[in-house]
Amino acid sequence: MRHIISILLENEAGALSRVAGLFSARGYNIESLTVAPTEDASLSRMTIVTTGSEDVLEQITKQLNKLVDVVKVVDLSEAAHSERELMLIKVRATGKDREEMKRMADIFRGRIIDVTDSTYVIELTGTGNKLDSFIAALDAGLILETVRTGVCGIGRGDRILKV
């Protein structure tokens, strides 16, 4: 099953490699991993999307908590949460495709953030599924480049992950 793990960890050199190293050493999957400092610059927040059985997830949570740099761990997907991913996609935008690209971006509520004679860069935010659908909706031959941030997530309502 797919899970979204949120981790608060000390914003120190090497902390990321401790988490990534743990996943590779113990054979856990990483679908995506994002990390950045929080409003408290001494802390980073990491979001890992992983898959595994309940037993594996229990071990992942326990092993993460064991890392000395890790302050808190929560499995966001255990309860109501919101998740988003950002994609920047560069497409060919010439001739009749130029108008079509603009229309597709509007339908998916994307924004065009860079324009040249022949290309657009479209910014799109949403769940991974939405980004996948957008890619599928485009003519593959027109996609020049894509970059995705990986998922970040947050609990709904009173679910707060803080020190």
Binding site: A13, G14, S17, R18, G21, A25, V68, D69
Partner: peptide, 14 residues
């Protein structure tokens, strides 16, 4: 050192 020993220590510091 920190990289090489990381998987076999409880913790390490540079």
């Amino acid at each position: 050192t920190v990289g090489i020993t990381r998987p076999c220590v409880k913790h390490n510091f540079l």
